[in-house]
Write a protein that binds this DNA or RNA. Structure first.
Length: 568
RNA sequence: GCCGCGUUGGUCAAUCGGUUAAGACGCCUCCCUUUCACGGAGGAAUGAGGGGUUCGAUUCCCCUACGCGGUACCA
C-alpha cells in the first residue's frame, strides 16, 4: 500500500505516506442544500467512529459557498439529525473550537489570499470568460467524440485569460473591475498518484483533468479551493468523502502540493456509494418515495418546493439501529457479527475493511436491524418515543401507568431479566442503560416489553399493545361463533365467578385454574383459549393470553369477557 | 466520447492460491406455540465472460462486457 516512488517518472507526483503522529481530526462537510440523506449520515458515522477510536476530534464544517443553492433550515436540520443519531461533532458552527469560523461563507476573506499565492507562483490564472462565452465554447468544440470539451491546457489558449492576454491587458481588465474567476493551471501529462485508505494507489493523468475554477466571480471559493484551504487551516488529518469526489482528487492533491506541501495533506478515503435497491445508481430521495421507505434521517420538507420527505426517525427507527445498519452498509469486522452498539463500533471499526464497491440499500434488512434493537433494548430506552404514538392514535395512557415504582430491592429484579437473555450480548455496552436504570418499569413499559418481539418499527407498538389500554372497538365474533356452544357460555360464566374470587391475578395461576376448569367441564382447553383471546384482544393476535389477562387486571378482564358474552 | 472506480446467491457479505465458497436479510419446510410473533432445526439460491500465471485460481495479471461516478463560476 505504499505510494509509488517518484523515480518512476520525472513528472510523477507521488504522495508520501506520513505517519499518523499528528492528532486525528476529521470533518464532515455538507452543503446546506436539503435533508441529510443515508449516504451523508454514513459518512458522518465513519468519521465519528474513526475520531472516537483514535481519540481525535470530529468537526462539522458547513460548505455554503454556493449562495444560490442555500436552503434555509438545512443546517439546523443537519445538526438535529446528528444529535438524534448520537453522532454529535466536537466542533461546529454552534459549538466553535479554535479553528472557526465553521461556515465557509463566513471564511470568504481567507480564500483570496491563497488564490493569489497560486497566481503568483504560476499555478493559477485569471479567466475573464463570461458564462455565455463558456457556453459558446462548449458548443463550438463539441464533437461526437468529445461531447463535453474541457477548459484545459489546449482550449485555454483560445479563451480570454491572463495566460493568453498581454499582461498590460490583464491589468487593465482587472482595474476596470471586469468580473473574473481564478482557474488552476494544470500542466499536461503529469501523473498524480495518491494512496486512498480504501482503494490503495489511485493514479490520474493531468491531461484528462480540466483547469477547474478555484475562485468564483463573486469572490467565493469553489469546493476545490475551499476544501484544501480549510482542511489545512483546520488541521484535518484524515479526509473521508463520497466516491463521487474521486475524479477531482488530483486537483486537490495538486493544490496541496502548491499551497501547503504534500507532507501536510490529510489521508484520503473515498467511501463507496449507497445504491438504490432496484436497478443501479445512487440512492435518491425519489427512490424512497417510489419504493416506500425513508431516505433522510428525519422528516424534511423543502421550504421552496414544499415537497415532503419522510425520515428514519419518524418512521420509527431507533438511533442505535440506524447507526448499526448504516455501519454495516459497506463495512463489517469479518467475524460475521452484525449487531453492534455504537461503543462497540468505535472499538471495532477500521477503514481497511470498508468496501470498495457500492451497496444496494435493502429496506427489509434495515427493518430487521430495528427489530433486533427493539428486542434487545429494555422498553425504557424508547418508551418516551412510543408514548406520543399512542396519543396520536387516540389512545390515552393513564398517568398511573407511566410512573415507575420506587427502586426495587434485588429480589424484585428477576421480574424483567430476559431482556438480555441472548448470551452473545452479555456484558455488552448496550446493557448499560438497563443496569443504570434501576427503577422498575412502569406498567406502560412492562406492556411494551410484553409485545416487543412482534414490533419492527416503533409505531407497531400501537397496533400490538393498544388493546391493553383501550377495549377493542370491535370483537372478531366470526372467529368464535361457528364453534360456540351453550357449554362454553356456561364455562365462561363460571370463569367470571372464579376470577372474581381468585386471591391473586397472576398469569401462571390463572392458567392453571383455567385448565382445571376446562378439564372439569370436559372441554379441550384449545377450544376455550381462542375465544378468551378474542374476548380480551378483539382479534387473533397478541402475547400469551394469560399474560394479557394479568396485565389487564381483574376488573377489565371480567368486563371484556362479559361484553363479548353479551354479543354472542 | 474521455477519465476514474467497481463487479462473490435476489440483497448485505466472509475468503487475504488449495474450503463441501462462511454468516445474515428475504423466501420455503418442519418443530415449539391450539393466536401472531419470538426461538430452534432444515432447504433452495452465488464467484460477469475470455485469456494468461500456477501443480492448483473466487483469490494474482491482462482483455472484454456490464454498472457507477466525474467531465459546472454545484457540492
Amino acid at each position: 500500500m505504499s505510494a509509488p516512488c517518484g523515480a518512476i517518472s520525472a513528472t510523477r507526483i507521488s504522495v508520501p505516506l506520513h505517519s499518523m503522529s499528528k492528532k486525528v481530526r476529521v470533518r464532515f462537510a455538507p452543503s446546506p442544500t436539503g435533508g441529510l440523506h443515508l449516504g451523508g449520515v454514513r459518512t458522518v458515522l465513519y468519521n465519528y467512529l474513526f475520531a472516537r477510536k483514535h481519540g481525535g476530534d470530529f468537526i462539522l464544517r458547513i460548505e455554503d459557498t454556493d449562495q444560490s443553492r442555500y436552503v434555509a433550515g438545512a443546517e439546523e436540520y443537519i445538526l438535529e439529525s446528528l444529535k438524534w443519531a448520537g453522532l454529535e461533532p466536537d466542533e461546529s458552527p454552534e459549538r466553535p473550537g479554535n479553528y472557526g469560523p465553521y461556515r465557509q461563507s463566513e471564511r470568504k476573506p481567507i480564500y483570496a489570499k491563497y488564490a493569489q499565492k497560486l497566481i503568483d507562483a504560476g499555478h493559477a490564472y485569471y479567466a475573464f470568460d463570461t458564462p455565455e462565452e463558456l457556453e459558446v465554447m462548449r458548443e463550438k468544440y463539441k464533437t461526437g467524440d468529445n461531447p463535453s470539451p474541457q477548459y484545459n491546457h489546449t482550449l485555454r489558449k483560445k479563451m480570454r485569460n491572463s495566460l493568453q492576454l498581454d499582461p498590460a491587458e490583464t491589468r487593465a481588465l482587472l482595474e476596470a473591475g471586469t468580473p473574473y474567476v481564478v482557474r488552476i493551471k494544470l500542466e499536461p501529462d503529469q501523473e498524480v498518484a495518491f494512496t486512498d485508505m480504501i482503494r490503495g494507489v489511485v493514479t490520474f493523468n493531468t491531461t484528462s483533468v480540466d483547469d477547474k475554477v478555484l475562485l468564483k466571480a463573486d469572490g467565493m471559493p469553489t469546493y476545490h479551493l475551499a476544501v484544501v484551504v480549510d482542511d489545512f487551516l483546520m488541521e484535518i488529518s484524515h479526509a473521508f468523502r463520497g466516491e463521487e469526489w474521486l475524479p477531482s482528487a488530483p486537483v486537490h492533491i495538486l493544490l496541496w502540493k502548491y499551497l501547503f506541501g504534500l507532507e501536510h495533506m490529510p489521508h484520503w478515503a473515498h467511501l463507496p456509494l449507497i445504491l438504490k435497491p432496484d436497478g443501479n445508481g445512487k440512492l435518491s430521495k425519489r427512490d424512497g418515495d417510489r419504493l416506500g421507505f425513508p431516505v433522510f434521517a428525519m422528516n424534511w420538507t423543502d421550504p421552496r418546493t414544499k415537497e415532503p420527505a419522510t425520515g428514519f426517525r419518524e418512521t420509527g427507527f431507533l438511533p442505535a439501529a440506524f447507526d448499526n445498519l448504516l455501519a454495516m452498509l459497506g463495512w463489517n469486522d469479518g467475524s460475521g457479527q452484525e449487531i453492534f452498539s455504537l461503543d462497540e463500533l468505535v472499538e471495532k471499526f477500521n477503514m481497511d475493511r470498508v468496501h470498495k464497491g457500492g451497496a444496494k440499500f435493502d429496506y427489509e434488512k434495515a427493518r430487521w436491524f430495528n427489530h433486533e434493537w427493539i428486542k434487545r433494548l429494555p422498553s425504557s430506552a424508547y418508551s418516551d418515543q412510543v408514548l406520543p404514538l399512542f396519543q396520536a392514535a387516540g389512545i390515552t395512557i393513564p398517568a398511573a401507568d407511566l410512573v415507575q415504582p420506587p427502586t426495587p430491592g434485588p429480589a424484585l429484579m428477576p421480574e424483567f431479566p430476559p431482556v438480555f437473555g441472548d448470551p452473545t450480548l452479555d456484558g455488552q455496552p448496550m446493557a448499560i442503560g438497563f443496569i443504570e436504570n434501576d427503577a422498575l418499569p412502569s406498567r406502560f413499559q412492562k406492556i411494551l416489553d410484553l409485545v416487543k418481539d412482534r414490533c419492527h418499527l416503533l409505531p407497531d407498538f400501537v397496533q400490538q399493545a393498544g388493546f391493553f389500554f383501550q377495549a377493542p372497538a370491535t370483537v372478531d365474533l366470526d372467529a368464535i361463533k361457528p364453534k360456540w356452544t351453550p357449554a362454553k357460555t356456561q364455562f365462561f360464566a363460571e370463569l367470571i365467578r372464579q376470577l372474581e374470587l381468585s386471591a391473586t391475578f397472576e398469569a401462571a395461576a390463572l392458567e392453571a385454574n383455567f385448565k382445571e376448569m376446562a378439564a372439569a367441564a370436559a372441554i379441550k382447553p384449545g377450544e376455550l383459549l381462542m375465544p378468551l383471546r378474542v374476548m380480551l384482544v378483539g382479534a387473533k393476535f397478541g402475547p400469551h393470553v394469560f399474560d394479557i389477562a394479568a396485565a389487564l387486571g381483574r376488573d377489565e378482564t371480567i368486563r371484556r369477557i362479559r361484553h363479548t358474552l353479551s354479543l354472542l
